[in-house]
Design a protein around this nucleic acid. Structure first.
Lengths: 163, 163
DNA sequence: CGATTACTGTACAAACTGCTCAACGAGCGG
DNA sequence: CCGCTCGTTGAGCAGTTTGTACAGTAATCG
């Protein structure tokens, strides 16, 4: 068979494998090979390659924060004093309830996602966040629902079909 | 031993197990039991229970979108015409590059995360998003960096230590 | 054409999994 | 105070999977 071009990080088989693993993550290599109709060694080789290329980072446990008691999610846009972004980011990273921080273009310099157990708890978390030095202005909003939960599936399906 | 209270969804052992699995997701049940110093059956029971309670959803593959060619991430805040939020959310869900949508409080009604392969591609994606009917006003910003990548670890560590 | 690369099929030892069983200890209710 | 129930332990067993290796085939590239 033709050597899979290294220019293309993922081919159709890779995508189908990832889709399969997305749906049933506990599947072993052998079972995957059976379902995909390829040899076991091939599946192993593909997975190794994807790990090597950094596409496949691993199989972390997926937790439901709500079921863990952290039922509230909030977003905050922070405006930071000039040149203090890195420092602020570091401070934010030290707050347990801060689950994600992005530096963005536009007026808001930092975008923060955080969780909390209750309204009172959320208040506390927000206070902690805005109390970080060099934070100029903040705008917070609470997530009411999540029509589209984090997903990658459509992208994979594209790859699986196109190639 | 005392029956583990069902009021507390996670106890210290659960948290330590989840931490272990976060660090080395490929670990089998047997290896986990060895590292935690408990019997294999216990680990199995804990995992079953967490799955039953919905805390542990599974072990999906973690993909690096950047390594897959989708190097750009952007956020959009959409203002929606009255009563059209559900409809818009549905439309957004149909766009492959839309990886996450939240309904939020505040002026922005919907919060969207999307990815793209290049600036041109991003332009196309954004155009697609804002072209959705009933979308009044949009404000988009690009993620420049991610000081704190999505994480749950600190929360787990709290549980592991406190209990 | 020869070299390289990828996939297949096979094989074997080592390890793991799912499952069961008996036993122990700690709370709980009567 | 007793008996029950539940979580945990340690053991065992059959079946399956994993890691690894090797040989054969096929397709691309120079």
């Amino acid at each position: 068979m033709a050597p899979t071009g290294d220019d293309d990080p993922l081919d159709g088989l890779d995508a189908r494998l990832l889709l399969l693993l997305s749906d049933e993550p506990r599947l072993g290599v052998l079972e995957c090979s059976r379902r995909l109709g390829v040899a076991r060694g091939t599946v192993q080789a593909r997975m190794d390659r994807m790990v090597r290329r950094g596409v496949l980072r691993g199989f972390p446990p997926e937790l439901d924060l709500a079921a863990m008691g952290y039922g509230l999610t909030a977003f905050a846009v922070l405006e930071i004093a000039q040149g203090q972004r890195a420092t602020v980011a570091e401070r934010l990273a030290a707050i347990d309830e801060v689950c994600e921080v992005h530096a963005t273009t536009g007026q808001g310099d930092l975008f923060v996602r955080m969780v909390a157990r209750s309204n009172a708890d959320l208040q506390r978390v927000i206070d902690t966040v805005v109390a970080v030095p060099a934070v100029r202005r903040t705008s917070t909003s609470i997530a009411l629902s999540t029509p589209v939960p984090p997903r990658v599936r459509p992208l994979l399906e594209n790859l699986a079909n196109d190639e």
